[in-house]
Design a binder for these strands. Structure first.
Lengths: 85, 85
DNA sequence: TCAATAATACAATACTTATTTAAATAATTA
DNA sequence: TAATTATTTAAATAAGTATTGTATTATTGA
């Protein structure tokens, strides 16, 4: 188990905005949600959400798919599950 | 599941010093370790370790027991385990 | 009781992270 | 092609966290 990655994951989930964003995507399942809709749902500014989505994505917790001018985010469930021994 | 507590736990484990301290105590099992020995093992100053142990304890991840002039810390394993559904 | 030791508390400083606003980029539609 | 929309980036600032050094508290053993 990679230590640095473990810290990155804990770190990624240690802010209210990021934990809320991640939970939202877990709830949305494989449908996921586009960034703008997430910002409205979570009532945070698009720029601020983008900042946090980037952190979550870099920690490997989210996957992004471009759909036209939308960015659809999905929770990367396996990353969490495989960390539960 | 208490949201705030979940964040507190992630937060508590999102620093290198704190994750190292927690892991050390998990390894030590029910024997635990006194603060001074932990500081030597982890090569951080006693004052700094004390700061982090306080955070871990407040998040409920550690238990402390006074033994004379020593403070023996132990990992509170159930708190983590019961969070894995 | 006094000196030594273990740990914590406090204050100052250094460092990181979060938030906001404005601007830039890129894709769509009129 | 121009205007619009979705998102990200950048810069500035605000807010929060970590580290260090020193002082304090509490306990033990001479």
């Amino acid at each position: 188990m990679d230590n640095q990655h473990t810290i990155a994951i804990f770190e990624a989930l240690s802010s209210v905005v990021r934990l809320d964003a991640f939970r939202l995507l877990v709830r949305m399942g494989k449908e996921g949600m586009v960034a703008g809709e997430m910002a409205k749902t979570l009532t945070v500014s698009p720029a601020n959400l983008s900042f946090h989505l980037k952190a979550l994505t870099q920690a490997g917790l989210l996957a992004v798919e471009q759909q036209g001018r939308f960015q659809r985010y999905r929770a990367n469930i396996p990353v969490i599950v495989e960390r539960i021994p």
